[in-house]
Amino acid sequence: MEGGEKPELIVNGKRLDGRDFGELRSLKIEAEVLKNADGSAYVEWGNNKIIAAVYGPKEALPKHISDPDRAIIKCRYSMAPFSSLEEHGRTGPNRRATEISKVTKEVFENVILLDRFPGSEIDIFIEVLQSDGGTRAAGITAAAVALVNAGIPMSDVPYAVSAGKVGDKIILDLNKIEDNYSDADIPIAISPRTGNVLLLQMDGSLTKEEFKQAFNMAKEAGKTISELQKSALVDPYRKLAEKYKV
């Protein structure tokens, strides 16, 4: 939310970029984009460009942080200093990134079968190369694909998307301008198999009824996002099969 002159975000029942209230931006997901990482994914979500990589499971270091019963997850969400339309950002994690890294880690602690790898660590790196609103949701969606691509056993492949409020209208997948001037911003991560909410944050102003609407929009969008995640995961194998004419 931002001060200053608030632009008209909804004109003639359409959003500034021409979308309907419940419409996702264009979304492209590609798996296995980095050689060194055990798993990786690249997401273009509207103007967001985000790359995620997974290393591990490997020995948890330093030793004293390891858990003899299960794997631990290290997660780093970070925005490149050149990623925003505004000025050059500070390098390294700030307080916002620290918090996003924490809640992202907690999403994956829910679905990764951690007890399969005692004493190990699994590293999740999310780098935002270009940002246009909704980067934490896009990062989680990308990291989920990278984890599967790394062969990490999981109970489900979560997705995330943000909903929000402009005036009295609930809208899906806010871009940067909408995010800056919205009346509420609600990032949500869902485990599609159970419908469980793994991440929920919100600030602004919202009624219970509006939350319901926002949640249902996010859930509906999840069908599309999950499909794209799945096809991104299959794609590298389909290409291999074509190459060797299997």
Binding site: V103, E106, I186, V197, L198, L199, L200, Q201, M202, D203, G204, S205, L206, T207, K208, F211
Partner: peptide
Amino acid sequence: QYIRAMQKG
């Protein structure tokens, strides 16, 4: 009047 913030952890 409103819900102002939420945080799941």
